[in-house]
Amino acid sequence: MNPQTITQLPIPTYFEPEGVGKVWRVPYQERAAQASDWAKKYNIKPAVEDRTRICLLLVDVQNTFCIPGFELFVSGQSGTGAVDDNRRLCEFIYRNLDAISAIAPTLDTHTAMQIFHPVFWVNEAEEHPIPAATNITPADIKQGIWKVNPDVAYSLGREYSALQNHALHYVQQLSQHGKYPLTVWPYHSMLGGIGHALVSAVEEAVFFHCIARSSQTEFQIKGNNPLTENYSVLSPEVLEDANGRPIAQKNRRLIQQLLDFDAVIIAGQAKSHCVGWTIDDLLTAIQQTNLSLTQKVYLLEDCTSPVVIPGVVDYTQQADAAFKRFAAAGMHIVKSTESIIQKVKNE
Rank of each mutant, 00 (worst) to 15 (best):
L299W: 08
Q287F: 06
I266H: 04
V313C: 03
N243L: 10
Q318S: 13
C303H: 03
T304E: 06
V297E: 01
Q295T: 10
A242I: 10
D260P: 09
V313I: 15
C303G: 06
V275G: 05
H332C: 02
A322R: 08
V308L: 12
R253S: 14
T294E: 03
Q288W: 09
T284E: 15
L293S: 01
A328V: 12
Q295N: 14
I255D: 01
L239M: 10
M331F: 07
D302P: 03
H332L: 11
D320F: 01
L254Q: 01
E237S: 12
I265Y: 03
N290T: 13
R245D: 15
K250E: 15
A263C: 03
E301R: 11
H332Y: 11
P306N: 10
A327D: 02
P246C: 08
T304G: 01
K335T: 14
D314F: 08
N290D: 15
A319V: 11
V307A: 11
L259E: 02
K296S: 13
K271G: 08
A322Q: 10
N243P: 05
V334H: 00
Q288Y: 10
H273S: 11
I333E: 07
T316A: 09
Q249P: 08
N243D: 14
G244H: 05
T337Y: 09
E240S: 14
Q288S: 06
K324G: 11
A319Y: 05
L254T: 06
R253N: 13
Y298R: 01
A329S: 11
V264R: 02
E240C: 14
A327W: 06
S305H: 04
A270F: 07
I333W: 01
D262F: 05
A285Y: 07
P310A: 08
A270V: 12
E240A: 13
R325Y: 10
L282W: 09
C303Q: 06
L258W: 05
F261H: 03
D320S: 02
K271S: 15
K271A: 15
V275T: 08
D320H: 00
I286T: 05
E301A: 08
G276C: 02
G244Y: 05
E237H: 01
Q249R: 15
